[in-house]
C-alpha cells in the first residue's frame, strides 16, 4: 500500500474538504458505538451528579425499568390501540382524498394552476391550530383527532400525487401514444407505474404527519390514546415513565416509517 502511493497521506491532509478513501464498515460501527457509549456515560454522569434535579435526568437504569414496566402495562396497549386506530383512519380518509385531488390537479394544467397554490401554501401551516374547530364539528372523542389527522395528511398526499403526475417523463407518455395505447392502457401501464414512487412516498410522509397531529391533539384534549397517556404521566411528574413512553412512541413511529418505506420501496 505504502509503496504504491507514497505521497498521498500528506497531500490528503492539505485537501481536507475532499479527503476520502473508502470508509470501512468497522470504522462506522466503532464511531456509532463510541457516540452511544459517550452519550450514555454523559447522561448517567449528569444524572448521578445531581446538577439538575435528579428527577429531570433519571438514571438510565430507571428509564430501562420504566420501559419494561410500560411494556407489560395493559393500559399502554389500550391507548396504543386507540391512537393506531385514529392514525389509520386519518390516513385512509386523508390519503384517499389526497390521491383523488392530486390526480385532478396533476392531470389538468388549468385546475392545477387554479387550485394548487392553495394546497401548496396551506400544506405547511401549523395544523394543530385547527383543533378547536375540529372539536366543535366532531366533538372531543376520536372523531376530532381523525379529522385533524386526515386534514394534515391530505395536503402531503395531494401535493406529492400532483407532483408525481406532473413529473412523469413526457417521453414515456409519447411512447405509449406512439404504440397507440388506449386510455385505459395508458392509465394502467404508464401513468400508474410511473407515479407509484411519489404517491407511495406521499403516503409514507402523510402517515408521519397524521401520527404527529393525532398525538398532539390527544395531548391537548382527550381521555384516551398515547398522547393522553403522555400528559397523564407528565401531570404525575413521573419522569422515568415519561422518557420510557416517549422512547417507545419514537420507536413505533420510526418502525412505521421504516416499514412503509420498505413496503413502498421509498427511502427515508
Amino acid at each position: 500500500m505504502a509503496a504504491t502511493e507514497p505521497v498521498r497521506p500528506k497531500a490528503a491532509r492539505s485537501q481536507g474538504w475532499t479527503a476520502g478513501g473508502p470508509v470501512s464498515g468497522r470504522d462506522t460501527n466503532l464511531i456509532r458505538i463510541g457516540i452511544v457509549l459517550g452519550a450514555a456515560i454523559l447522561w448517567e454522569g449528569v444524572s448521578r451528579s445531581g446538577w439538575l434535579f435528579q428527577d429531570v435526568v433519571p438514571s438510565l437504569l430507571a428509564i430501562g425499568a420504566a420501559i419494561g414496566k410500560m411494556l407489560v402495562n395493559p393500559a399502554f396497549y389500550a391507548n396504543l390501540q386507540v391512537t393506531a386506530g385514529e392514525v389509520f383512519a386519518s390516513l385512509a380518509i386523508g390519503g384517499a382524498l389526497g390521491i383523488f385531488t392530486g390526480i385532478a390537479l396533476g392531470s389538468n394544467r388549468f385546475l392545477g394552476a387554479a387550485f394548487e397554490p392553495y394546497v401548496y401554501y396551506l400544506a405547511p401551516t401549523p395544523r394543530i391550530i385547527f383543533f378547536p374547530v375540529m372539536i366543535m364539528w366532531f366533538g372531543v372523542g376520536a372523531a376530532s383527532k381523525i379529522a385533524l389527522g386526515a386534514l394534515s395528511c391530505f395536503f402531503t398526499v395531494a401535493l406529492s400525487t400532483a407532483g408525481g403526475m406532473r413529473g412523469i417523463d413526457t417521453v414515456l407518455i409519447r411512447v405509449g401514444k406512439s404504440f397507440r395505447a388506449t386510455p385505459w392502457q395508458m392509465g394502467m401501464k404508464i401513468y400508474l407505474p410511473a407515479m407509484r414512487v411519489p404517491v407511495l412516498n406521499g403516503i409514507r410522509l402523510g402517515f408521519g404527519t397524521a401520527m404527529v397531529t393525532a398525538l398532539l391533539a390527544e395531548t391537548k384534549l382527550s381521555n384516551q390514546g398515547l398522547g393522553y397517556m403522555i400528559m397523564q404521566i407528565y401531570s404525575r411528574f413521573d419522569m422515568p415513565s415519561l422518557y420510557a413512553l416517549l422512547i417507545i412512541v419514537f420507536i413505533i413511529a420510526g418502525a412505521g416509517n421504516l416499514i412503509l418505506g420498505r413496503v413502498t420501496g421509498t427511502n427515508a
Binding site: 406512439s178 404504440f179 392502457q185 401501464k189 404508464i190 410511473a194
Partner: peptide, 26 residues
C-alpha cells in the same frame, strides 16, 4: 410507424424483456 425517441425512453419499472414486449402486451 414505429418511433424511437431521442430521450431515454425505456420504462424504468420494467426489465428488458418486459420493456421490449410492451407493444405486444398492448
Amino acid at each position: 410507424v414505429g418511433m424511437v425517441f431521442q430521450e431515454e425512453s425505456t420504462f424504468p419499472w420494467r426489465n428488458v424483456l418486459d420493456n421490449v414486449a410492451f407493444p405486444l402486451e398492448l
